[in-house]
Simulated scan of single mutants.
Amino acid sequence: MSELRFDQVTVRYGALTAVDGVDLTVPSGQVVGLVGESGSGKSTMARAAVGLVEVASGQIQLDGEPLRRRPGGRRPLQMVFQDPYSSLDPRMTIGDSIAEAIPRSAAGARRQEVARLLDLVGLGADRAPSYPGALSGGQRQRVAIARALAGQPDVIIADEITSALDVSIQGTVLNLVRSLQRELRLSMLFISHNLAVVRYVSDFIAVMYLGRIVEFGPAADVLADPQHPYTKELLAAAPRRGSTTLLDPVAQLLADPAAQAVAERAAQVVADAEPADPHHPPAGCRFHPRCPIGPLVLADREHCLTIDPTTDADRRRHRAACHHVAGDLQPVTAGSVAKEDSL
Rank of each mutant, 00 (worst) to 15 (best):
Met1Glu: 07
Ala15Ile: 12
Thr17Val: 12
Val22Trp: 02
Val26Tyr: 05
Leu34Asn: 07
Glu37Leu: 05
Gly39Ser: 15
Ser40Leu: 04
Ser43Glu: 05
Ala49Met: 14
Val50Tyr: 01
Leu77Asn: 03
Phe81Leu: 09
Ser86Thr: 14
Leu88Asp: 03
Met92Val: 03
Asp96Phe: 03
Ser105Met: 06
Ser105Leu: 03
Ala107Val: 10
Arg116Tyr: 02
Leu117Met: 08
Leu120Arg: 15
Arg127Leu: 13
Tyr131Leu: 15
Arg140Asp: 11
Gln141Ala: 03
Gln141His: 07
Ala144Pro: 02
Ala146Met: 04
Arg147Asp: 02
Val155Thr: 13
Ala158Leu: 14
Ser163His: 05
Leu165His: 06
Val167Ser: 12
Leu174Trp: 01
Arg185Met: 06
Ser187Phe: 01
Met188His: 02
Val197Cys: 04
Tyr200Asp: 04
Val201Met: 09
Asp203Ser: 07
Met208Thr: 09
Met208Cys: 05
Tyr209Pro: 10
Tyr209Ser: 09
Gly217Cys: 10
Gln227Leu: 01
His228Ile: 05
Thr231Glu: 00
Leu234Asn: 11
Leu234Gln: 05
Leu234Ala: 07
Leu235Met: 13
Pro239Asn: 05
Val250Gly: 09
Gln252His: 01
Ala255Pro: 00
Asp256Gly: 07
Ala259Ile: 12
Gln260Thr: 14
Ala261Val: 14
Ala267Phe: 06
Val269Phe: 00
Ala271Gln: 13
Asp277Lys: 08
His280Ser: 12
Pro282Asn: 12
Ala283Phe: 00
Arg286Glu: 13
Arg286Thr: 12
Phe287Asp: 07
His288Leu: 08
Cys291His: 10
Pro292Ala: 14
Pro295Tyr: 00
Leu296His: 06
Val297His: 03
Arg319Thr: 07
Ala320Asp: 04
Pro331Met: 06
Val332Ser: 03
Ala334Lys: 11
Ala338Leu: 06
Ser342Asn: 06
Leu343Glu: 02
